[in-house]
Structures are given as C-alpha cells and as structure tokens.
C-alpha cells in the first residue's frame, strides 16, 4: 500500500476545521495562562482570588497561606504564586484522555484527522517514553480534586466583602462571586467526568451490583463523562475568563457590580 503524505485524503468535507480550531483554542489558552502566571500581580481583588493563583501558598495578597515570597526562592528565578501550583491542573489537562486525542491531532498531526495522511512513518503511541507517562493521569486527578475543594472555598470567601469603614466582613454577592462560582461548577463537571475517576469509582469492577454505592457513583460520573469534551472546553474558557475578570477588576478597567 502506498503511504499517504500529510493531509492527503479522499475526504470531501472540511476535515481541517476542527483541528485548526483546537490548535487555536489551546494555543490561545496556553499563551494567556503562561502570561498571566508570570505576571505575579493583579490576581486578587477584594475577596476574589484568580483561580490561576489558588491556592496562594506564598505571595503578597491577603489570600496567602504562608506569607510573602519565601527566602529560599532563588534570586535569579522569577517568582509568581501561580508558578508554584499551576503544574497540577495543567498536568491534569495535559494527561486527560480527551485532550490527548485532541492535541495529538491538532499539534502533532498524528493523525491530522480521521482517514487523513500523516507526516511521519514512525509511531510509538503511548506504549513507550515519553507518552507512556500519560498513565499518571489518575494521580493528577487526585490533585485536581483537591484544587476543586480549594476553589469552592474561594467562592465561599468571595461572598464576604470587607467594609472599608468598619473593617467588618459582610455577606454579599458580586458579579465576580458568580464568575468564580460558575467556574467551579464547570471545573467540577469536567473533573468529575474524568475517565480515570470513572474507572476507579466502579469501572474496574465486573460486578457492580455487589457495590451499590459504587454503581450509583459510576452512573453519576458516567453522566459527566458522556459530555467530557464539552465540559473540557467550557471549563477551559471559564477558568481563563475568571482570571481575566479578577485581573481587569484589579487593574480598575472593569467595575465589579455588587448584586447585593
């Protein structure tokens, strides 16, 4: 059989549109999130904390857990609280089964699309280094689950606004609170539809009837899993937008409306 070259196909449809959109969507997010992570400022506003910077282990904002930049941090290295933590949710998405399939096509043309010619003869798949490391996905899920709890706690904190006069905190809801809350819901819908979670929670069993709780949990995870691609994109957009919202409020470009 004669090997087809890159992009060679008998397909008539616009097969290249989806890989191009994936390439543009993921590239935009990677560029923006990297830029935002290196800024190290404008990541909090009032009770709001950007999800790119949560949890803020060390930093200058009131949200910091352990105080300002640690003394052991090398002087030559740029410091930003986001750099300490973003590897975890980033790793979760990088090793996600949906994103894997999407970026193999869009960034590596392996294949560019179904039934379309590829640029390379050689192929190792995920059975040898480096892609065999994708099997670490479930561990990134464990970390992502912790982040979900922390981000949900951030939403709770985003409901308490400090009165500048009295210094007392009052319950309230701002547009930023809703932005952060929607973000957590979308991140939850994405994370809780994880294929690894579906396996761990019940998929590994051949007789789910012997564990009714696992069976119920398996069904619930399956509900999210069926729309995993949709949640992956919605949550990617929402987490980027949540950072942008807090950043623009912090810079004074956007005004955060208090609903009550």
């Amino acid at each position: 059989m004669i090997r087809r070259s890159l992009g060679q196909t008998s397909r008539r449809d616009v097969w290249w549109v989806w890989p191009v959109l994936v390439f543009l969507g993921l590239s935009t997010f990677i560029v923006y999130s990297t830029w935002a992570a290196f800024q190290g400022r404008d990541y909090h506003f009032g009770p709001y904390l950007s999800p790119f910077y949560s949890p803020e282990l060390w930093g200058d904002s009131p949200h910091s857990w352990f105080g300002p930049k640690p003394g052991w941090w090398p002087a030559w290295a740029p410091f930003s609280p986001a750099l300490l933590i973003l590897w975890a949710p980033g790793g979760f998405r990088l090793t996600c089964y949906y994103y894997r399939g999407a970026y193999y096509k869009a960034f590596w043309a392996d294949p560019p699309s179904c039934a379309v010619g590829e640029p390379r003869k050689s192929y190792w798949g995920e059975s040898s280094l480096p892609l065999i490391l994708q099997n670490v996905h479930r561990y990134f899920f464990y970390l992502a689950a912790i982040f979900l709890v922390l981000l949900a706690h951030d939403v709770w904190k985003a409901m308490w606004f400090t009165d500048p006069g009295s210094g007392k905190a009052h319950f309230g809801i701002g547009v930023g609170t809703i932005v952060l809350a929607v973000n957590v819901c979308l991140l939850g819908s994405y994370s809780l539809g994880c294929h690894s979670l579906r396996h761990l929670i019940g998929g590994s069993r051949d007789q789910l009837s012997k564990a009714p709780l696992c069976a119920k949990a398996y069904q619930c995870v399956g509900c999210f899993n069926r729309r995993h691609m949709m949640w992956a994109w919605f949550s990617l957009f929402s987490v980027g937008f949540a950072d942008l919202y807090v950043r623009l409020c912090s810079k004074g470009i956007w005004h955060d409306w208090r609903i009550f």
């Binding site: 089964y97 894997r100 294949p111 039934a115 190792w124």
Partner: peptide, 15 residues
C-alpha cells in the same frame, strides 16, 4: 496486543 499504541483519536467511535 498493543493497547498502549492507541492514542485516543476516537476515529473508531466516529465511524
């Protein structure tokens, strides 16, 4: 049998 060779393109599901 090469389960690790599948790189999850989902083309099989599509067709």
């Amino acid at each position: 049998q090469g389960a690790g060779l599948c790189n999850i393109t989902k083309c099989c599901t599509k067709v």
